[in-house]
C-alpha cells in the first residue's frame, strides 16, 4: 500500500482549509480593501460571536447530538441582560444570563441523556420556549442598552485588537486544549463515536451528554451578551437562523454530524470559510440575496464533496 501522503491526499483531507485559503487569496485580489487591517479585524470580530456559539456546538456535535436552541438562547440572553442592567448592573446580569444558559443546558442534556429523547426535537421545543421568552421580555421590540461595561465588551479594544476577538481566541484555545489533551475531551469523542461502547468501557455517558449541552448553553448565552454589546441593543428575533448557520460552520469544517470525528480547528476553518465569503461578497457589492445563494451553494458543495470523497476512499480500499 502506498503510504506517502501526496498532494492529492492532503487536498482530500483539508478541503475546507483549501477553500478558505483559495477564498482568501481570491478576495485579496478582487478587492484592494480586503487585506487591510481594519477589514480583517472587522471580519474576525463579526465572526467571533457566532464563533463562540460554534465552539459550544462543536462539543455537542462531537458527542453525536444537535442543539437547535442556541439562536433562541442567544437572543434571550441578550434581551435578559438588556433588561437586567438597569436593575442589577452589568456584571450581575451577565452572570445571571450565563447561569441561565448553563441551566438550560442541564435541562436539555438531562432530557437527552436520561430519557433518551432525540436532541433535535428537544432543542426544537426549547427553541420555541426561549424565542417566546425573548419576545415576552422585550415586548417584541429591540431593547436599547446604554452601559459602559457592555459597550467596552462589544466595541472596545485591547492592544489594538477588539475585545470580542480576545474572548473568541481565548475560548478557542481553551476548547482546543480541552478536546485535544484532556481525558474530558477524549471521552466526549468516545461518547460520540459510539455511546454503547463508551458506556461499556466505563464512561458515564449521560454526564458527558449533559455537560456538552451545558457548554453549548453557556456559549450561546455569552454570544448573546457579546452581540448586544456590539450592537448596543438587544433584538428578540436576532437568533432566527443562528442555530443552523452555526451547525453549518461546524460541519463544513469537517466535523461529522454522526459524532466522534472532528474538532475545534475544523470548526474555526468552517467558520472563516463563510466569514471570508460574506465579507468579500459585501466588499464586491453583491446583493444580499445573491450572497445567500452563494453561501448555500458552498454548503452543498463542501458537504457533498466531503461525503463523495469518503465514498471514493471506501471504494479504493475495497479495490485494494
Amino acid at each position: 500500500m502506498n503510504r506517502t501522503l501526496g498532494v492529492g491526499a492532503f487536498i482530500r483531507k483539508q478541503r475546507a482549509l483549501l477553500i478558505l485559503v483559495a477564498g482568501f487569496i481570491a478576495s485579496s485580489f478582487a478587492s484592494p480593501y480586503f487585506l487591510t487591517a481594519d477589514n480583517l479585524l472587522n471580519l474576525v470580530s463579526q465572526a467571533s460571536i457566532n464563533g463562540v456559539i460554534a465552539l459550544g456546538m462543536t462539543f455537542v456535535v462531537l458527542s453525536g447530538e444537535l442543539d437547535l436552541s442556541v439562536g433562541a438562547l442567544n437572543a434571550f440572553s441578550g434581551v435578559l441582560v438588556a433588561r437586567l442592567i438597569p436593575v442589577c448592573g452589568a456584571g450581575a446580569s451577565m452572570i445571571i444570563a450565563i447561569a441561565l444558559g448553563a441551566l438550560a443546558g442541564v435541562g436539555t442534556g438531562w432530557l437527552v441523556a436520561r430519557l433518551h429523547l432525540n436532541s433535535f426535537v428537544v432543542t426544537l421545543c426549547t427553541m420555541f420556549v426561549f424565542n417566546g421568552l425573548a419576545l415576552l421580555l422585550s415586548d417584541s421590540r429591540p431593547v436599547e442598552i446604554d452601559n459602559p461595561v457592555l459597550g467596552a465588551l462589544g466595541t472596545g479594544a485591547v492592544l489594538g485588537v477588539p475585545v470580542l476577538i480576545w474572548i473568541f481566541a481565548v475560548l478557542c484555545a481553551t476548547a482546543w486544549y480541552v478536546l485535544r489533551y484532556t481525558w474530558y475531551g477524549r471521552n466526549v469523542l468516545a461518547v460520540g463515536g459510539g455511546a454503547k461502547v463508551a458506556e461499556l468501557t466505563g464512561i458515564a455517558v449521560h454526564r458527558y451528554k449533559i455537560s456538552v449541552f451545558v457548554i453549548s448553553g453557556v456559549c450561546a448565552a455569552l454570544g448573546g451578551i457579546m452581540l448586544s454589546g456590539l450592537l448596543s441593543s438587544a433584538s428578540p428575533t436576532v437568533g432566527g437562523s443562528t442555530a443552523l448557520s452555526v451547525i453549518t460552520s461546524v460541519v463544513v469544517g469537517g466535523t461529522s454530524l454522526s459524532g466522534g470525528e472532528g474538532g475545534i480547528l475544523q470548526t474555526v476553518v468552517g467558520l472563516f470559510v463563510f466569514a471570508v465569503l460574506s465579507n468579500s461578497l459585501s466588499l464586491l457589492n453583491v446583493p444580499s440575496f445573491n450572497q445567500t445563494i452563494i453561501e448555500g451553494l458552498v454548503l452543498v458543495v463542501v458537504v457533498g464533496w466531503d461525503y463523495f470523497s469518503r465514498r471514493m476512499a471506501a471504494l479504493s480500499r475495497l479495490a485494494n
Binding site: 443552523l244 451547525i247 453549518t248 460541519v251 461529522s256 454530524l257 454522526s258 440575496f289 445573491n290 445567500t292 445563494i293 453561501e295 448555500g296 451553494l297 454548503l299 452543498v300 458537504v303 457533498g304 461525503y307 463523495f308 465514498r311
Partner: peptide, 24 residues
C-alpha cells in the same frame, strides 16, 4: 445518492438547498 449521504448529510444538503431556494 451521488454522495451516498447518510441522515446527517440529508440534514445539511437539504438545508443548503432550502437556503438557496429561499434566497431565490
Amino acid at each position: 445518492r451521488t454522495i451516498r449521504g447518510d441522515f446527517g448529510a440529508s440534514i445539511m444538503i437539504t438545508f443548503g438547498v432550502g437556503t438557496i431556494l429561499a434566497a431565490v
